[in-house]
């Protein structure tokens, strides 16, 4: 059975200062979990290098709105995750390092990048809107 070393080092939040960020998103790496009941389509296939622009996410206390493209808006809420959601990252150490340590060639280590305790859940059907910019 393969095994991996498991590391947990809670890093401080990157942007403690950016106060306009809502509390939910104020995680160390700034990762947030969004749940949509649907499929996202983009006209052009997005690559890793150039992510497609999805839209805006606005908050109003408990509720959140997600603007998708120019014509859709979804209303969602912030939900506690129980149990919380851990985001892991595999860290492959350099070969030389590992050889020095314990002689084993390929050691896989995993570290917890983030623990997400809240998610933004969009359950409702997207509302069709007319983009202000268009008119």
């Amino acid at each position: 059975m393969p095994s991996a070393t498991f590391a947990f080092n809670m890093r401080p939040a990157i942007d403690e200062s950016s106060s306009d960020f809502p509390h939910v998103l104020r995680t160390p790496t700034g990762l947030a979990l969004i749940e949509i009941q649907g499929t996202l389509h983009t006209a052009q296939p997005s690559s890793d290098s150039t992510p497609a622009e999805l839209g805006k996410l606005t908050f109003d206390g408990k509720t959140a709105w997600l603007w998708i493209g120019d014509h859709q808006r979804m209303e969602g809420s912030i939900v506690d995750l129980n149990p919380p959601f851990g985001v892991l990252r595999r860290v492959t150490r350099k070969q030389s390092e590992m050889e020095e340590e314990n002689g084993r060639p390929d050691e896989t280590a995993v570290e917890i990048v983030e623990v997400i305790r809240k998610k933004i859940l969009f359950t409702s059907r997207p509302e069709p809107i007319v983009n202000r910019n268009m008119t």
Binding site: A4, G38, T39, L40, T42, A43, E53
Partner: peptide
Amino acid sequence: REGRVWVQFHEGFSNAVRKPVSWSDFW
């Protein structure tokens, strides 16, 4: 035309299936 993004909503649809994942698959 280019940057059009939209959501296709699946009503009453969930593809959340709980299925066992083996350790090796996971890794």
